[in-house]
């Protein structure tokens, strides 16, 4: 059943990496090199990360929780900046909006991605390769080009509108500058990753399992709900977590395709920083965004460190 496709192997290797790791250190005590050497090998990337992510991030957090009094010049530990955030109805609306857009996007990704992954897993068609290339294609399109293309494809009097006009449909309402516009673009952007991981998850379900279910008379739907879905919860959770992290802080697509208000957090913090000269406010939003992503990150970590049930 394995196809000799190079791309498929790449595809699989990536997906496997993202679904399977990190397994507990294989029972390899025998050839265990000294721990110290391990630290030497991981030192360069860890150092880069500490210097360029952790150090500035901690600085940002500190800046938001220590508030200096304008009169006395004294600095005190205070959550004042965060309280201010939650008291502002606009910012609250932005946060809610971001959560909703993220959930809608991830939901749509499952609706679109799961059938595609099922198809790629089970189809024996020659066109499966083409389908795979098409689903991978968005990997090679940067966000700004996507926004550029979608405005002209989906916009009023865009290509899609024109096509509808040719077949006689009028009254098209464009998703450009609407929340739907953001969702469409983000789904488009994240399809490759979603399909990649879900296909890998489905491939771990062995044909024999499905065949034996069929032998005892299970219908297609039963196989789907009783076997495929439960056995792919792990990859589904991974898709959920990493997509949430990727979508939540999005900037370019929501900025160019979304409505003026409410806006997603990525846009909102840029605006606070750039237009309102509110550096602390922007950092507060950044830290909050990070905390939410970090919570999802913890879920992710728990998913992948849990031993597989097999």
């Amino acid at each position: 059943m394995t196809r000799p496709y190079n791309r498929k192997k790449i595809f699989m290797a990536t997906a496997r990496a993202l679904t399977a790791q990190p397994a507990p250190p294989a029972a390899a005590k025998r050839r265990d090199l000294s721990g110290l050497f391990g630290y030497v090998l991981i030192a360069p990337p860890v150092a880069i990360m500490l210097l360029l992510i952790f150090y500035p991030a901690i600085e940002a957090v500190i800046e938001t929780i220590f508030v200096s009094d304008a009169q006395t010049g004294q600095t005190t530990l205070s959550l004042q900046n965060y309280i201010a955030f939650f008291q502002d109805p606009i910012l609250r609306a932005n946060l809610t909006f971001t959560v909703l857009v993220t959930l809608a996007t991830v939901f749509m990704l499952f609706v679109v991605g799961y059938p595609l992954a099922m198809y790629l897993r089970f189809s024996k068609s020659r066109l499966a390769g083409t389908v795979q290339v098409l689903t991978l294609f968005p990997l090679f399109v940067p966000g700004v080009i996507l926004a550029f293309a979608l405005i002209r494809f989906l916009g009023t009097h865009g290509m899609f509108d024109t096509l509808l006009g040719i077949v006689g449909i009028s009254g098209y309402r464009t998703p450009y500058l609407q929340p739907q516009g953001i969702v469409i673009a983000l789904v488009w952007e994240h399809i490759p990753f979603t399909v990649l991981v879900l296909t890998a998850g489905l491939r771990q379900v062995e044909d024999a399992v499905i065949e034996s279910a069929r032998d005892v008379g299970a219908s297609g739907w039963q196989i789907f709900t009783r076997i495929l879905l439960p056995l792919t919860t792990r990859s589904a959770l991974i898709v959920f977590c990493l997509n949430v992290i990727g979508v939540f802080g999005a900037f370019t697509l929501p900025y160019l395709l979304g409505p003026a208000q409410p806006m997603m957090m990525g846009v909102s913090m840029q605006q606070a920083f750039n237009n309102y000269q509110d550096r602390i406010g922007a950092l507060t939003q950044a830290v909050l965004t990070f905390l939410i992503c970090a919570a999802v990150g913890v879920l992710y970590v728990r998913t992948i460190t849990r031993p597989r049930e097999r």
Binding site: R173, Y176, Q178
Partner: peptide, 22 residues
């Protein structure tokens, strides 16, 4: 306003809407 109150994100997107007759 255009699309029941949709405001583009810049000078050029506005020129574009004008150019394509939206």
């Amino acid at each position: 306003i255009y699309q029941n109150g949709s405001y583009p994100a810049g000078n050029n997107p506005v020129l574009e809407l004008l150019a394509n007759g939206s």
